[in-house]
Write a protein that binds this DNA or RNA. Structure first.
Lengths: 338, 338
DNA sequence: GCGCGGCTCTATAACGTTATACAGGTGATG
DNA sequence: CATCACCTGTATAACGTTATAGAGCCGCGC
């Protein structure tokens, strides 16, 4: 269909190999020949067939970012950063949606797709250490977010326990005593949920507050609807909480909605904190206090490290990086930052 | 690196071609041989090299969906639908982010990427008819959303003018008279903005209401921040509006925020309507009345039509499809649906 | 007994690219 | 003058797959 090297070679009256050398500069070409070839390329509008190049070189220049939900703004924001970083390094990043599905994660991990991408950045939620260790595909893998430890791959995440500490400390500092958590998964396998609950419990203990199991609400998933339902249940308790900490911003925003519907004032009656710092939280009424991971750092680091591995750089062993986070005080805890 | 056809052939003691036939069923294979081959495949964990298959077949099984902003939930929701539909038809859909950048749209239109994907679904915002006509790439193209007409490609969109009519009629029906529009682009090139403004003006005229240019607020982009700023400006007018219609839900949500900050009641003082029906609008306080395009229909239709073209189906001429939409009444106009 | 069609399977030529080995020519060096 | 190094350019073998042509075998009908 398209114009290929042979067409150019004929047009310019040189060999195939010479055209290839002009295109990718693997070997020097005389100035006059180069110009003739270049002219032919311009005239015929040649662009290399990436499939064939891939076949020959063993690289596609494609990397993938696989996330559990495209519709979670956290991942969309992360993706935009990662795409830009990949482009700056000469790679194309494609998005994959695992839909939080175990089969999809496994397929990505060592499945057929691997054959067309040079490397994978994966945010796993349904698979664990064993599955990652069992992987056979040879291409580099970088894990982001929580869920899998002690595997021979780079891993980038925030310290979830510490993040919870920061959120709870803030709520305690503004005088809250009955602090709920929304987004635990009782029998679930989302590792980050367990870690965030752990941080929540530790921080309560450190503040000398009792741990009340009834204030820890489980959810099926981690969307706004889940947060709203859980908050309704909490409000139905005889003695409702005076603050809630959500597994993420979407859950927290769902909680805000339930509170508004029940005519509870935020933050006067109930203070709310989330995690992720999605843009949406800056426009809710009230605006949402949140733990803000450094998305730029996570996105850029994941891409850079993956590409370093692809290009065979001898980065010392698999590295686990904990990226920084900040507490952003907004209206939902009554004490907005400057 | 990976296991290939030759490895399987050796292991099973058959020829390369036979393995290929077992894998893709191009020609019948005897039952006993098939089993031996299948066993070898399972044991060695073979999966075909997509690059090589592409080179040979001329197809990759990859299609792309290019949108102006990954972080706009409308596109994220659309993408999830399209990904599922593509998967059901045996294709893999990858997301591309044009970042509303003209160069990015052009590069996608007939650039090098085309060589690795079988077809493209594009939501153009910075390019027009000429650019699309000038495209040289041979792979099928489906356009979604507004912006380009009279080109030899399938085009799927809602009727923006009619959508505006519906929104304005609703606002008029609940007694509003000073209706503003947020998200016009005065000198801009976003076609859908022009169309939505046109529908707004026509509907005002049909209702016997005057057109007041000061109530039409331009924005640089179409995010929450833009909506918030524009709303602030409108409120600063001597005679502020009693209703606003946003270019999309994100703009409308920004307007909601500005109204909350200024202590205006919604919908009592100002009613608000958006377009897109993003999930976020079901959780704002108040919930957002919106024009809901049939995202499922748009996403599925775009994918199905693209794949039909790729597979050479003789679909009659390029087709322009207008997909249906509905008005969803929620709290921001005071009259929630059942 | 021989030709013929049908059924399995095999050998092999592409697809478009890049890397390797090599050929021809030129100028410098021993 | 022969040798060597060097510089340009060429021919060609991969990469892993699929489609085509054809080889071998069996049974059937004349």
């Amino acid at each position: 269909m398209g114009v290929n090297l042979k067409d150019i070679a004929q047009r310019a009256g040189v060999s195939l190999a010479t055209v290839s050398n002009v295109v990718n500069g693997y070997r020097p070409v005389g100035e006059r020949t180069r110009q003739r070839v270049q002219q032919a390329i311009d005239e015929l509008g040649y662009s290399p067939n990436l499939g064939a190049r891939h076949l020959r070189r063993g690289r596609t220049g494609l990397i993938a970012l696989a996330v559990p939900e495209l519709t979670n703004p956290y991942f969309a924001e992360l993706a935009e950063i990662a795409i830009a970083e990949a482009a700056a390094l000469g790679y194309t990043l494609v998005m994959e949606n695992t839909a939080a599905d175990r089969e999809a994660e496994l397929a990505l991990l060592d499945g057929s797709r691997q054959r067309i991408i040079d490397g994978l950045i994966l945010s796993p939620v349904r698979i664990g250490r064993e599955e990652v260790l069992a992987r056979t595909a040879g291409s580099p893998l970088v894990l982001i977010g929580e869920g899998v430890y002690d595997v021979p791959h780079d891993h980038i995440a925030i310290d979830n326990v510490a993040a919870s500490h920061a959120a709870i400390r803030h709520l305690v500092a503004i005088g809250r005593r009955r602090i709920a958590f929304i987004g635990a998964t009782p029998g679930g396998d989302r590792q980050s949920a367990h870690l965030r609950v752990r941080g929540y419990r530790e921080a309560l203990a450190a503040a000398g507050l009792p741990y009340r199991p009834r204030l820890v609400a489980g959810t099926d998933a981690f969307g706004r609807l889940d947060g709203m339902r859980a908050m309704r249940d909490l409000l139905a308790l005889g003695d409702p909480p005076d603050a809630v900490f959500g597994y993420n911003d979407m859950v927290a925003i769902g909680a805000l909605r339930a509170l508004a519907e029940a005519d509870h004032r935020v933050p006067e009656d109930v203070a709310v904190v989330g995690i992720d710092d999605i843009e949406e939280g800056r426009f809710t009424a009230p605006t949402l206090t949140t733990i803000a991971p450094d998305k730029r750092e996570i996105g850029r680091l994941a891409v850079r490290r993956l590409i370093a591995r692809i290009e065979g750089a001898e980065v010392a062993g698999p590295l686990t990086v904990q990226t920084p986070f900040r507490l952003l005080r907004r209206e939902s805890t009554g004490t907005p930052d400057a």
